[in-house]
Design a protein around this nucleic acid. Sequence first.
DNA 1: CAGTGGTCTAGACCACGAG
DNA 2: TCGTGGTCTAGACCACTGC
Lengths: 233, 233
Amino acid sequence: MALTDTNSWTGIREELLRRIHDRVWEPGAQIPHEADLAEEFGCARTTVNRALRDLAESGLVIRKRRAGTRVALNPPQRATLTIPIIREEVEALGKTYRHSLLERAYQPVPPMLHGVFHASLGDDVLYLKTLHFADDRPYAFEERYINLDTVPEARQRKFEVSSANEWLVHNAPYSRGDLSFSALNANEDTARILDCTPGTALFAMERITWTGDAPITHVKLIFAPGYRMRSRI
Amino acid sequence: MALTDTNSWTGIREELLRRIHDRVWEPGAQIPHEADLAEEFGCARTTVNRALRDLAESGLVIRKRRAGTRVALNPPQRATLTIPIIREEVEALGKTYRHSLLERAYQPVPPMLHGVFHASLGDDVLYLKTLHFADDRPYAFEERYINLDTVPEARQRKFEVSSANEWLVHNAPYSRGDLSFSALNANEDTARILDCTPGTALFAMERITWTGDAPITHVKLIFAPGYRMRSRI
DNA sequence: CAGTGGTCTAGACCACGAG
DNA sequence: TCGTGGTCTAGACCACTGC
């Protein structure tokens, strides 16, 4: 009866979705085995598997060996957000990008990062302070620490032409990263740099990336007032 | 030479990842066809396909028919963030959750949402103002509009015991949602409700969910000071 | 222990889109 | 147009885990 192709895995996925939405299968209820569904749809079990795997990835069903597949009780709302390189983000807005390196220094690991950059405490890290512009207006302020144990080549780079962001993406691929987002009030310095009033609420993103167990870099990005991060479920 | 199983799709994925990280295949370069890789690893093409598909999903390679597979030039940083039901988020922190309904009213569609809730302008929407607590401290303040055309049953619900959030998740599954995150300064009202100083920077999330083309609900959540949203790449 | 999902195979046909 | 990825099949064995 389905209008969709029940022979393609996407078609099967749509039909399964429909049954979940229409409460043919209640939340928490177990749904038929792959083998049964395959028979019902007249396709190979692999195809049903593909459809169910996709639903499981989006969190709508929970699959366990032996226990079968159940409709999720509290379908988590998963959103994939793409964090582009700032230059691309700005250019996608139709604006002209440029950035300016405010500071470049070798510093001891700051206390905040001791737990993370567990490099020998005497060692220095490369500290970079960058301001990103969109059409000559401040767009985001970046503070970055680079682990020189992991990326020694960074010593040779000035990061004036291409930003550390881009250079690292191309030259020190990470395998894992921790992200966090928050809101903070602009202090005197930040306000001056981002050209706003002290106290203004600003959107901030922090990120640490790792290659295996070795931390590569820690970045804190503070966006100019009015920034919104968007995503779609 | 690889230490990983080269017969499992995850093993193959790790080996491909290694070659990308080690620059065996430069960014932008084309990598061998599935068939060649399958031969090299001594496995079925399907298995290589699975590994490559996974890398493509995470944005590390770009696949096109006829054109082959290339290492992405600017691997976008994709993060999957899971937005839980607030009650679960609070309980996961080991705190006690409760919520309090501050207001429940039928209102005309607010101007801000005219473009979205293109219901006949005379129609009312259900407006809800809720405060979420963690251990009796304000956790998040929620303002919500519910489209009664889409979810007429909401009229019957008081939303005092179970929150609108949970009720909707269970009773009006959405097919699509738009999310945005921002920072804002607490105004007098918000500050009073969230028990903070006016002007404090607060983290806010807005979400509109749809079922097909019909909007279900618009929510704006403003979190108490100090909130961080975390994610992992 | 045994049932369920997870994965792999070898082969086939198809759809897209670059050249 | 035709090479490349996308998908489907029928069958098999395996791994996990609830019963």
